[in-house]
Design a protein around this nucleic acid. Structure first.
Lengths: 203, 203
DNA sequence: GTCTATAATGAACGAACGTTCACTCATCTC
DNA sequence: GAGATGAGTGAACGTTCGTTCATTATAGAC
């Protein structure tokens, strides 16, 4: 059928859509894509499986929608954190801190980006890759602005940095006496910048 | 199709068991635990599903067996690489290089340890956690021996290091013009040791 | 008061899942 | 040869998977 020429928006009742997205984000981030079933999500939301297909055409499109929202949220968090900071190292530190805070705040939308690898879902791999790259480009730019030793491979540095950041999800336990997101970001950036060797040790 | 029936088999070989383990390692490392079915493994090995249950009582015990072999292999690789090296930083560099080489050589046994998170499989989480910790203790010891700046949190350093190492599996493409495992390990350890900031920049 | 469009249900579809089991077959022991 | 052993088969088990669909409920538009 042809789309209604004048589609009135009587009730912005896509509240259900948002609840599905939020629950799906938690499930995908918590147990992975393959281990999460449509029925798991429906049960958690409190609707039937059919209702999910009213809002999303398939499981992998639902994942892409979750990914999009996750990238949007963490991207905005990082953008907001680095806005107005000019000094390159301070910018990077602020960006890393915002990334860590989003990840460790246990928000499914952020964690799903780290947890679900694009190649896990072949039907959606292209979209997931594009979304990930779009987000990570921020760190590429932040690293580009740094004044580095001449022989530094910036690509390796970026991947090393993201690896350290995203690995936190595997081991970090909130309130476990460890440093918080801000403290972690501070130590990460200090390490990358100056190293951890005792000053004066042989080069 | 069928093996030579007349060929004498003097010893009941557990060759099949090893083939199952190897194929399972590749599958679990490539697509994850939940996305790999017993039938996938059986098809790849060239046997029936029932034959797998002759050698392993369940899917999660098969995973544990793969994990054990993976930890044994990468552990021996690291032990061999650092044997005879006394200087702490050189030891760490050698260990990181061996870890990376095992990971990037595309060996399923090594990759599965990084890919499959213990909490993914509740029935086996305890065993997987124990095996992982046993392996990672090597890096804990190597880091303990380093002469570091007084305010350095060694735990955070270890997790940062492992994050950088294991994240390579996500992005590294063999022969893609990028540095090889040895080159990556060299840059990783140089970064951790002295940082990447241009010498003389403000502290 | 109809008409239309959409949200949601509940049951069903075929396929795939992990697991079990009676059975065949080759080998080894006596 | 008789019996035991253990690897491997092939079919089936009950369950869960992603997805579909006819139907009902609701609410603005005419």
């Amino acid at each position: 059928m042809v789309q209604a020429k004048l589609a009135p928006r009587p009730r912005a009742e896509d509240q259900t859509r948002w609840r599905i997205l939020a629950v799906a984000a938690e499930c995908f981030a918590g147990h992975g894509y393959a281990a999460t079933s449509i029925r798991d999500i429906a049960r958690e939301v409190g609707i039937t499986v059919g209702a999910i297909y009213v809002h999303f055409p398939s499981k992998d499109r639902l994942l892409v929608a979750v990914y999009e929202e996750g990238v949007r949220r963490i991207g905005e968090a990082v953008d907001g954190a680095i806005a107005g900071i000019a000094e390159p190292w301070a910018r990077l530190a602020a960006g890393m801190r915002a990334h860590l805070e989003a990840l460790l705040a246990n928000a499914g939308f952020a964690r799903v980006i780290v947890r679900v690898i694009p190649t896990d879902v072949p039907e959606a791999a292209r979209d997931l890759r594009r979304l990930r790259d779009g987000y990570e480009a921020r760190f590429e730019a932040m690293i580009e602005a740094l004044d580095l030793a001449p022989d530094t491979d910036r690509t390796v540095l970026r991947l090393m940095l993201l690896g350290a950041l995203n690995h936190t999800q595997t081991w970090y336990k909130r309130g476990a006496g460890r440093a918080d997101a801000a403290g972690l970001a501070r130590q990460f950036v200090a390490t990358l910048r100056h190293g951890v060797a005792r000053t004066g040790s042989s080069k």
